[in-house]
Design a protein around this nucleic acid. Structure first.
Length: 844
DNA sequence: AGCACGCCGACT
DNA sequence: GTCGGCGTGCTC
């Protein structure tokens, strides 16, 4: 006799529980349970959620220590088997727990929560008193009260009960222990029906008259609301009441409490693109260049061959059209496709293009969807109702059964790296997943990351690479339009000549000319380096977060100062808290300053500003762009978000206010980031009939990233940049792991950080890894640090970091992970944390 | 992460 | 003498 059992990863975020636990499969589930099923399992004294990762047969003797699975939570497993396998690869590669990885693969709606219900135990055999209570356990008055309450309600939520009887902590526990009350636990999904609050009047005629006259002078606002509701007559959304009358929700609530109005939740159907019609689009004719690329791509598709392509195409070379046609081919072969785009470029135009070509076969996933909307889109994929999924980073986990193609647009974007656990890079995950499916991968960019480009050029001969893409190039724009002329403006010269404004004379004249001709200008400000901090000009005081070593950011809208890292907020001061001076200045977002200057220089100019302040509201991003498209603005001024994929026919001038702000950052990718950004921005001008002009203002006009960006010369940039990388053995000539240790107590942390680094060094030594990284460098693995992190304190925790630089074919991740575990075990203090970031993108 | 068990301080 | 602080250890 054997038993069927399942290995389950339980939803407990701790190192000790990051392993499979064995459970018996009840007969009733036997034919339904699969790898990837989500289950509720008893774990210790509670019931929690878990994921089945394998199924086995066990001899009877082993079954004794196993508990049975309590419940299956879905009919269709939320994770197909290939994703479970991918998850174990990811946990190894990125040194994170299996549960964190599995959770990242499914919509948050399925992150089940334990609910505890209390009910009265069924003690029929026990003698009972007149009230029907078991006599045997002698109950105090308080206990009787609780038991009576539970009995009356059938079964009660634990949270509700402890809220209802807050005065007697421990009594509840006692009743449960003695068996008078029993507890049951279920897993409840986070999926909520989407509702809006609707308000309607509850009084009419004379009653209403009486109600209106009942308000005291103080309740003026309530009276206004009631008058408004009577006037409208029909139920109206609370939101509308608030915005029309400018009252707060509290006012309406009071009215409802008095019984004059009713507020109810009305369910609304969620379809993010409900009622929208997408103009159909048909494939464009391919240019010879596109034809070559296309042939090469579909050859892999047709042969069902896993192959990775790096599509290097200049801005405007029609990469999207190539994607669309390749996807079409993929679908016609009965396979599905995933399209990954950076969140910021997942604009309505982009969505429109895909919906227009593939209609209802597309699921769209982006961060602005609600939990429920995302869950619905995800279900379309899981249930096989769509063929294409388009979305940001996490769409790489779209649960397709027969994946044929993964497209990653703007492959160089850092947003493909997740900064939270699991700290995965969607590019590497995409390649790995495609390999499982025998699918093709297209990595597209006008400015490929050095890692991908170098891997393609070296043909994988370099030990640091995990894959070797085939390089495909597109150098022309199908429209025949030329890449715009780019002029570098040396701001030092401007200063020398007495121009102290942030606009050079050339840019100034350029804007003036556009205003005259009714053409448009895009101004780009590299936000990094432009701060929004508050400084006292008298004493030099800078407002900083009390918990983190970082300056606070000024938010105009709420007129307060906020910490970017921990969320701490305080009202903006009007005088300096240190010296009392009134000369305290808000260095508003850089864009605000530029906007002010523009207004001064060009009275009456219409500026559309796009930055965190103006785009925080849902849909505002799109609205601003549409306004600019409708020529309601002369200038579009913004940060990174104006650099991506925008395409406006009347834009003939692009100005970069300060190109070099990011160049001085202590990040080995600073030059690459600057080059990519400038190239993207420059590609925004003159994409149509009108010729474009680009001005790049800089204090470092001779820097190679600026020079080559102005010449649209990717190849030369790469050549130079690779030299620098090679000299210092930075990626792509090595790989990196960033280890950050944190604790509240600085001396303790310092000691632990030294321990960690020492231990790691010793282990690497033993493995003989301090050999040769290359013939010019001393070791195959190098440990830099520990040093204080660039932000040395966050949320009152000090931070130290070590950078591990190593030859790509070594399993340094396992070594680091084991060492981290050892170090953590040395300290029984739960407040000690070690975070491991494999292939870090942000070194700040 | 929870939750229980277990061993030392301030109270009826 | 008990209530309760949170250190320690375990969860199939």
């Amino acid at each position: 006799m054997t038993y069927r059992m399942a290995k389950v990863i339980v939803d407990v975020p701790s190192r000790e529980t990051d392993r499979p636990f064995d459970y018996l499969i009840p007969e009733s589930m036997a034919s339904w349970l699969e790898i990837g099923s989500r289950v509720a399992v008893p774990f210790g004294r509670r019931t929690i959620q878990g994921f089945v990762i394998s199924l086995h047969e066990q001899p009877e003797m082993d079954a004794a220590r196993m508990k049975p699975i309590q419940e299956m939570l879905d009919l269709l497993p939320p994770l197909p088997q290939d994703l479970v396998e991918l998850a174990s690869w990811m946990s190894r590669k990125y040194a994170c727990s299996m549960i964190a990885t599995l959770q990242a693969m499914i919509p948050t709606a399925l992150k089940g929560k334990t609910e505890r219900y209390i009910s009265v135990a069924d003690n029929d055999e026990l003698p009972q008193d007149e009230e029907g209570m078991s006599v045997l356990p002698i109950l105090t008055d308080e206990e009787k009260q609780i038991v009576a309450y539970v009995r009356a309600s059938g079964h009660v939520l634990m949270d509700h009960l402890s809220a209802r009887f807050p005065a007697y902590p421990g009594i509840l526990k006692g009743l449960l222990r003695r068996g008078t009350l029993t507890e049951s636990q279920v897993i409840k999904d986070k999926v909520r029906k989407k509702t809006i609050k609707s308000v309607s009047v509850a009084v009419q005629g004379d009653e209403a008259e009486a109600a209106l006259s009942s308000f005291t002078a103080q309740a003026k606002r309530q009276k206004e609301v009631l008058e408004f509701l009577l006037e409208v007559g029909i139920p109206i959304s609370l939101q509308e009441v608030l915005s029309t009358l400018g009252v707060t929700a509290g006012t309406v609530k009071k009215l409802a409490e008095k019984g004059f109005a009713v507020i109810e939740d009305v369910e609304v159907f969620r379809d993010p693109y409900q009622g929208r019609h997408f103009k159909g689009s048909t494939p464009l004719e391919r240019t010879p260049e596109q034809e070559n690329v296309y042939r090469r791509l579909i050859a892999a598709l047709d042969a069902h061959r896993h192959e990775v392509f790096l599509l290097h195409g200049v801005t405007g070379s029609g990469k999207t059209e190539v994607y669309l046609q390749t996807i079409e081919r993929c679908i016609s072969l009965g396979r599905q496709a995933i399209v990954l785009v950076p969140e910021i470029s997942l604009t309505p135009q982009m969505v429109e293009r895909f919906k227009g070509r593939f209609g209802g076969k597309v699921a769209v996933m982006h961060s602005r969807l609600s939990t429920g909307e995302r869950y619905d889109e995800w279900r379309k994929i899981r249930e096989g109702r769509v063929e294409v999924a388009i979305g940001a980073r996490s769409a790489v986990f779209a649960p397709f059964q027969n994946l044929g193609l993964i497209v990653m647009d703007e492959e160089h974007e850092t947003s493909y790296k997740q900064e939270e656990t699991p700290k995965y890079h969607a590019r590497d995950v995409a390649v790995r997943r495609a390999r499982q499916h025998g699918a093709a991968v297209i990595l597209g960019s006008a400015t490929p990351s050095l890692e991908s480009y170098h891997a393609a050029r070296s043909g994988g001969g370099d030990r640091h690479e995990e894959f070797a893409p085939v390089l495909l190039e597109m150098k022309q724009r199908p429209s025949g339009s030329q890449l715009p002329a780019v002029q570098i403006v040396d701001m030092r010269e401007e200063l020398k000549e007495g121009n102290r404004s942030m606009f050079s004379r050339a840019l100034h004249q350029g804007i003036a000319a556009r205003l005259e001709r009714g053409e448009q200008t895009v101004l780009f400000l590299n936000r990094r380096g432009y701060s929004t901090f508050v400084m006292c000009r008298t004493c030099g005081y800078v407002a900083g977060c009390p918990e983190c070593d970082i300056s606070l950011t000024y938010h105009q809208k709420s007129n307060n100062l906020r910490c970017h890292y921990c969320g701490y907020a305080e009202p903006a001061p009007s005088v300096c808290p240190e010296c009392g001076s009134e000369h305290i200045r808000y260095f508003g977002t850089g864009t605000q300053r530029v906007e002010g200057e523009l207004a001064k220089l060009f009275p009456g100019i219409r500026v559309i500003r796009m930055d965190v302040d103006t785009t925080s509201e849902k849909g505002s991003h799109e609205k601003l762009l549409q306004a600019f498209r409708d020529k309601k603005g002369d200038v579009l001024l913004g940060t990174q978000m104006v650099a991506k994929g925008l395409d406006f026919p009347d834009v003939t001038l692009v100005g970069v206010i300060a190109a070099d702000t990011a160049l001085n950052f202590p990040d080995f990718r600073a030059a690459e980031k600057t080059f990519q950004l400038l190239t993207q921005v420059a590609g925004r001008a003159g994409r149509h009939q009108l010729p474009g002009e680009v001005f790049i203002q800089t204090y470092m006009p001779e820097h190679y990233s600026i020079v080559h960006a102005s010449g649209h010369d990717y190849t030369s940039f790469v050549r130079e940049e690779l030299k620098h990388r090679r000299a210092l053995y930075y990626p792509p000539y090595s790989r990196l792991i960033l280890v950050t240790l944190s604790h509240e107590k600085l001396p303790l942390l310092l000691r632990m950080a030294e321990n960690f680094a020492g231990d790691l060094r010793a282990k690497a030594q033993r493995l003989g890894w301090f050999g040769s990284l290359d013939r010019l460098t001393p070791s195959a693995l190098d440990i830099l640090g520990p040093v204080a992190s660039p932000i040395p304190r966050i949320k009152n925790r000090y931070r130290f970091q070590c950078m591990v630089k190593y030859r790509g074919d070594l399993d340094a991740v396992s070594l680091v992970r084991e060492t981290a575990a050892t170090t953590l075990d040395q300290l029984k203090d739960g407040d000690f944390q070690i975070s491991i970031d494999v292939d870090p993108q942000m070194l700040m």
